[in-house]
Design a protein around this nucleic acid. Structure first.
Lengths: 209, 209
DNA sequence: AGATTATTGTTAATAAAATAACAATAATAC
DNA sequence: GTATTATTGTTATTTTATTAACAATAATCT
């Protein structure tokens, strides 16, 4: 299959989540416009994405939810479990671990790291916390491929460097500080302040105009 | 000024943050390619954004950091403080409150809400926690304009409804469940699972190919 | 059975975003 | 003082993403 657009990948992940909920509720088929409504996008967009992954629905009946879930999973899930670690066990780090525990079979948070002796060797929602000093060792040992950064901003660069040198292949940076990684490491940065400021901007223009 | 692209707004917020750090470090001027490097984008993109907001730098000296910060602030900040609340004082909610306390002068988290009696009437990093039952009252009383949703997924829709009926104008939804709001309410949804799955997808294609 | 409707799949058109190209020119080098 | 270099600002081009248009057809209606 040709390369899928980044945006499509992100939407497929979201479709799957909604589809899983629908399926859990006993629903078997779904129309493009129903998916669209859930995701706040257009039905054409949905059909186009589904076309791109090569699945076809049934005319007048819509898409078979189970089948669609399986197709999407085949595309976005890896064959084997990909292991993930969380660096920085603050509120955000705990939220991540919590949020994930047992949700995805193909993605598994297997370790977290912190500098606080009170946290080291304790468990966070079933995930053991190690010292950041052992990061490289543990990451190699457990073959962890993705690192989620939830450390304070001033530790961002050094954390990224450590992750990279330990052989991590993907980083999700939740600190407000952009980091540098070699180009064979996939980097996704998300910053809550920016999101809030974006909302504020639109609220402001709505209020002030 | 003509309408700025959404993407530009988001980038301006990020530029400002980087600029503030540079300024704090005693730097006075900065080149487009320096900003670009920090943000992992191209210098042209930076110059184009800055062009759009009508600021001009100095040839061969770059942009005056202080001035640029001020111009960006004039654009993205509101005249008066916009008040924000956080609904759901779990790990993520606490992370949000923490993260924000005192960072932005024009955006202020002034309340949070929860259902847990152990949390109600306590303070979270200086922000008082109220019962969700009083949400409407407090939001109106304090003239809160933006709501950050960090509740469990199964409370998402009802929380959004409450926020809307209380007169909120912007919602930042951090639950994994998309919600519906009238179109005069600005909605931004972010979902950590999707982000992680996106990273995983690229890591997978990198590993498996 | 024939007409109508609702829905998919796909191509074409449009819009948005990013990148390239390059003229202008201040600073620096020689 | 002239040439070279580095940098901005802006227009043009390309790429990416979204939306519109519509043919095909299964299901339903009359």
């Amino acid at each position: 299959m040709k390369q899928l657009p980044h945006k499509t990948i992100a939407r497929l992940s979201q479709y799957r989540r909604s589809l899983l909920m629908c399926y859990a509720n006993g629903k078997n088929h779904i129309y493009s416009h129903e998916i669209a409504k859930i995701q706040h996008i257009t039905a054409v967009q949905v059909r186009r994405d589904i076309m791109l992954i090569g699945y076809t629905g049934t005319l007048r009946k819509g898409y078979n939810i189970k089948e669609l879930i399986d197709i999407i999973s085949k595309i976005i899930d890896s064959k084997d479990v990909i292991k993930v670690c969380v660096v920085g066990v603050g509120n955000l780090g705990r939220a991540m671990v919590n949020y994930f525990s047992g949700k995805r079979t193909k993605l598994s948070i297997v370790a977290c790291f912190d500098t606080d002796p009170n946290k080291i060797n304790k468990k966070v929602t079933g995930v053991k916390c190690y010292s950041v000093d052992d990061m490289k060792k543990i990451i190699k040992q457990k073959n962890i491929k993705i690192g989620i950064m939830t450390v304070p901003a001033d530790k961002a660069s050094e954390t990224a460097d450590k992750l990279v040198s330990a052989g991590i292949k993907g980083i999700l940076n939740y600190t407000p500080k952009p980091v540098y990684v070699p180009k064979d490491v996939f980097l996704e940065e998300y910053d809550m302040i920016t999101s809030l400021e974006k909302v504020a901007f639109f609220v402001k223009t709505h209020i002030e105009r």
